[in-house]
Amino acid sequence: MQIDRTTVPGKGVLHQLVTRAGGRLCLLVDAHSTRHVLLYDESDRDVPARSIVLEPDEADQLAEILHSRPITDRLAAVERQVGELMRERGR
């Protein structure tokens, strides 16, 4: 996936995502940290066909769904790594 990040003066930061298959969506994070998911039609790749505003808790829920592994699994892996580092440091 290709991700480009652009600062849009007066609007916020625009993250443009293009998948390997050519699908495109953008995420605009405004000055108040509100996330706007911008969806595009195949007929006009420059003008969003739809904008969906996500509240912070909604953005967190979506992020959790999009993760390839649940947060509990990722946390357990980090805890194992910390434990290994602590054992190595104690040697």
Rank of each mutant, 00 (worst) to 15 (best):
M1S: 09
I3D: 02
D4L: 10
D4G: 04
R5E: 12
G10H: 11
G10D: 09
G10P: 13
K11P: 00
K11R: 14
G12Y: 05
V13E: 15
V13D: 14
L14F: 04
L14W: 09
H15W: 11
H15D: 06
Q16M: 02
Q16T: 13
L17Y: 14
V18Q: 07
T19D: 12
T19W: 02
A21V: 11
A21M: 10
A21G: 06
G22T: 10
G22V: 12
R24L: 15
L25T: 02
C26S: 14
C26V: 00
L27Y: 10
L27I: 15
L27D: 01
A31G: 15
H32S: 06
S33T: 06
T34M: 08
V37Y: 00
L38R: 05
L38W: 11
L38F: 08
L39I: 08
L39Q: 08
L39A: 10
Y40F: 15
Y40M: 05
D41P: 09
D41A: 10
S43F: 04
D44T: 05
R45T: 12
V47D: 08
A49G: 15
A49T: 00
R50S: 14
S51W: 02
V53Y: 01
V53S: 00
L54R: 00
E55M: 11
P56Q: 04
D57R: 02
D57V: 12
E58H: 02
A59D: 14
A59R: 02
A59I: 03
D60L: 12
Q61T: 13
A63D: 07
A63V: 00
A63W: 04
L66N: 07
H67L: 08
R69F: 10
R69K: 04
P70C: 08
P70V: 04
D73K: 02
D73W: 03
R74F: 13
R74A: 14
L75F: 11
L75T: 09
A76C: 03
V78W: 07
V78F: 05
E79C: 03
E79Y: 13
R80Y: 07
R80A: 14
Q81R: 15
Q81M: 14
Q81G: 10
V82E: 14
G83P: 06
E84Y: 09
M86I: 14
R87W: 02
E88L: 15
E88I: 12
G90C: 13
